[in-house]
Amino acid sequence: MVKPTTPPLFGHMTPAHSPFDDVLSGIQENEHRKANPVIRTAENLKKYIEDFEASLDAEHEVALRIASFGGVVQFHAETIGFAKPDLVTFIGITDEGERVQLVQHYTQLNFLLKAAKKLQPQARRIGFL
């Protein structure tokens, strides 16, 4: 015997979309950005790096110099991203061709942006995730 099914309460109703929904969504997104410092940090990093890249000629690309490993590590940055709630990631390649990925807490960021000779025929520009 087949049992009759009952439709979910209000299942047949679809809410109408209102322009206020878009405004509310925008407000919620802004509040989320304000509440999450790693997002603001990533946005600020992106602006600083894009401004620095804009000053480079076609023969140079951005290299990051990090001085917190008992020595100095320099690499050509390819990608910068973040992982909520508090990590920023840098992916790139050293002058010797070694792949590197640096993961740092957003409160520990401290590095030097440097113009470095390009490693490939075309200078790389950093991608942001």
Results as ranks from 00 to 15, higher is better:
residue 41 T to A: 09
residue 41 T to N: 00
residue 42 A to F: 10
residue 42 A to H: 11
residue 43 E to I: 11
residue 44 N to L: 13
residue 44 N to E: 14
residue 45 L to Q: 07
residue 46 K to L: 09
residue 46 K to E: 14
residue 46 K to D: 07
residue 47 K to F: 10
residue 47 K to C: 03
residue 47 K to R: 15
residue 48 Y to T: 08
residue 48 Y to C: 07
residue 49 I to R: 04
residue 49 I to K: 05
residue 50 E to S: 12
residue 50 E to I: 11
residue 50 E to A: 13
residue 51 D to M: 11
residue 51 D to F: 11
residue 51 D to V: 11
residue 51 D to G: 09
residue 51 D to A: 13
residue 51 D to T: 13
residue 51 D to N: 15
residue 51 D to W: 08
residue 52 F to P: 04
residue 54 A to F: 06
residue 54 A to G: 10
residue 54 A to E: 10
residue 55 S to P: 03
residue 55 S to F: 02
residue 55 S to L: 13
residue 55 S to C: 07
residue 55 S to K: 14
residue 56 L to F: 02
residue 56 L to G: 01
residue 56 L to A: 01
residue 56 L to S: 02
residue 57 D to H: 02
residue 57 D to I: 03
residue 57 D to E: 05
residue 58 A to K: 11
residue 58 A to P: 02
residue 58 A to V: 10
residue 58 A to F: 09
residue 59 E to H: 10
residue 59 E to Q: 14
residue 60 H to K: 11
residue 60 H to G: 02
residue 61 E to M: 02
residue 61 E to R: 01
residue 61 E to K: 01
residue 62 V to P: 04
residue 62 V to L: 01
residue 63 A to R: 04
residue 63 A to P: 02
residue 64 L to F: 12
residue 64 L to Y: 03
residue 65 R to S: 09
residue 65 R to H: 07
residue 65 R to V: 15
residue 66 I to R: 06
residue 66 I to F: 14
residue 66 I to M: 11
residue 67 A to L: 05
residue 67 A to E: 14
residue 67 A to W: 08
residue 67 A to Y: 09
residue 68 S to Q: 14
residue 68 S to H: 13
residue 69 F to H: 12
residue 69 F to A: 08
residue 69 F to E: 06
residue 70 G to R: 07
residue 70 G to K: 08
residue 71 G to C: 07
residue 71 G to Y: 09
residue 72 V to R: 08
residue 73 V to Q: 10
residue 73 V to F: 12
residue 73 V to H: 07
residue 73 V to T: 12
residue 73 V to G: 03
residue 74 Q to V: 14
residue 74 Q to I: 10
residue 74 Q to A: 09
residue 74 Q to E: 15
residue 74 Q to H: 08
residue 74 Q to R: 13
residue 75 F to M: 08
residue 75 F to C: 04
residue 75 F to D: 02
residue 76 H to F: 12
residue 76 H to N: 12
residue 76 H to T: 12
residue 76 H to A: 12
residue 77 A to L: 12
residue 78 E to S: 12
residue 78 E to F: 11
residue 79 T to V: 15
residue 79 T to L: 13
residue 79 T to K: 14
residue 79 T to D: 06
residue 80 I to P: 07
residue 80 I to C: 05
residue 80 I to M: 10
residue 80 I to R: 04
residue 81 G to N: 00
residue 81 G to Q: 00
residue 81 G to L: 01
residue 82 F to I: 00
residue 82 F to P: 00
residue 82 F to C: 03
residue 82 F to V: 00
residue 83 A to P: 00
residue 83 A to V: 09
residue 83 A to I: 08
residue 83 A to L: 04
residue 83 A to T: 06
residue 83 A to Y: 04
residue 83 A to Q: 11
residue 85 P to N: 06
residue 85 P to A: 10
residue 85 P to H: 04
residue 85 P to R: 01
residue 85 P to V: 05
residue 86 D to V: 00
residue 86 D to S: 08
residue 87 L to S: 02
residue 87 L to H: 01
residue 87 L to T: 06
residue 87 L to I: 08
residue 88 V to S: 00
residue 88 V to L: 05
residue 88 V to F: 01
residue 89 T to N: 04
residue 89 T to W: 06
residue 89 T to P: 00
residue 89 T to Q: 00
residue 89 T to M: 06
residue 90 F to L: 12
residue 91 I to W: 03
residue 92 G to A: 07
residue 92 G to T: 06
residue 93 I to K: 15
residue 93 I to E: 15
residue 93 I to V: 15
residue 94 T to S: 10
residue 94 T to I: 09
residue 94 T to A: 05
residue 95 D to P: 12
residue 95 D to R: 15
residue 95 D to I: 10
residue 96 E to Q: 15
residue 97 G to W: 13
residue 97 G to K: 09
